[in-house]
Design a protein around this nucleic acid. Structure first.
Lengths: 190, 190
DNA sequence: CGCTGATAGTTAGGAAGCTAACCTTAATGA
DNA sequence: TCATTAAGGTTAGCTTCCTAACTATCAGCG
């Protein structure tokens, strides 16, 4: 499992106690921070388990979804493509859209190609580039997998009302905006 | 970066549109799900960057924190130890507390030992076991690192008021309880 | 035309996860 | 007592991420 140290969170009283030793420790901030990381992890772990049962990984699934934009119109709307943007087709474009390095994308495409989900072809216009396309097997996989995937997400979020979901998204967006700022106070490098 | 596919989230209208094609897609659930994963990722990435600047990884940092409980009283309260529980000392105990496999813990301890942060000694009472202890260098590191770490967490959470932090933790706890349930509806395995 | 620099893709090597298998040692029980 | 089971630690091999370096190609400019 990804983020270590999150199995047993300290109780709030312990944070208050520890704050006496560490003046920089803001108990409610640490509490919110640890809960956010842990819950995010748990939710992600459920999704990952779902994918693993279908012999798929989160990274490879992300690549398939990005490529799918170019095949199915409803996929384009789902993935947020603007105006018939057909989605990236080259390793570099996919890496950029997915937020990983080109080297990592090479590895993901290697595995997907080995498993018969994508094909690599040289770009006829620019001989530096490759074009990556989905195979019919990949489209079959997505059509079979996505309904269950969406059901699982609905189940995860079922404890929250519509209003609570809105509130959650609003609070998360505030944090997201903060992390995008130049740089929050950090420990000075040695 | 860990979770692929989270760089550009689909707009809410796109989710509504996609829901027409996928009856199982609950737009507000997917919206909350994606925002939770992405924000968690961004927050974690900041922490990780902070650690990386000090040549430390999240996993190894977690191990140091667990071991620190046995050295410093304030660490014990911070880590949620009950009544002078001195924290795990063996690889198996650390693996359990951190939520990773014993094999992974072996690797983490290998690296920490190589870098001079921990020592391995055989347990005199049970010759199967090893005892892992912090070196003075590790304690120095933590004393130097933690204030900045806590400052960074406070900065991340600064956009939220105390009331908003409470709300966030409450909503996350609801989801956390849900993910602990036997198993939410998932796609059937092939 | 021929440099020079930027871009695309890959390769190599490392870290941190995992599972599965292995060896040693302890605990249990017939 | 001694065989069996359980537990601790490690190893080996896989995946997926990273950075750094390399090769091939394109684009610009003298």
């Amino acid at each position: 499992m990804p983020h270590l140290l999150l199995k047993d969170l300290p109780r709030y009283e312990c944070l208050l106690e520890a704050a006496k030793e560490f003046p920089d420790l803001d108990p409610s901030a640490v509490d919110a921070y640890l809960n956010l990381l842990r819950t995010g992890d748990e939710v992600f772990a459920l999704t990952e388990r779902n994918l693993t049962q279908h012999a798929m990984s989160p990274g490879r699934f992300g690549v398939l979804m990005l490529l799918w934009r170019g095949v199915e119109p409803e996929a384009a709307t789902l993935m947020g493509a603007e105006n018939c943007d057909c989605g990236p087709r080259t390793p570099a474009g996919l890496a950029d859209a997915a937020g990983v390095t080109r080297a990592t994308m090479t590895g993901l495409i290697d595995t997907l190609e080995r498993d018969g989900f994508v094909k690599r072809e040289p770009d006829p216009h620019d001989r530096r580039m490759m074009l990556v396309t989905l195979t019919p097997a990949a489209i079959d996989f997505l059509r079979g997998f996505l309904p269950g995937h969406f059901k699982a997400i609905a189940a995860i979020m079922s404890p929250l009302s519509e209003a609570e979901r809105k509130t959650l998204v609003r609070l998360l967006a505030k944090l997201s905006r903060q992390t995008a700022e130049p740089a929050p106070a950090a420990a000075p490098a040695p």
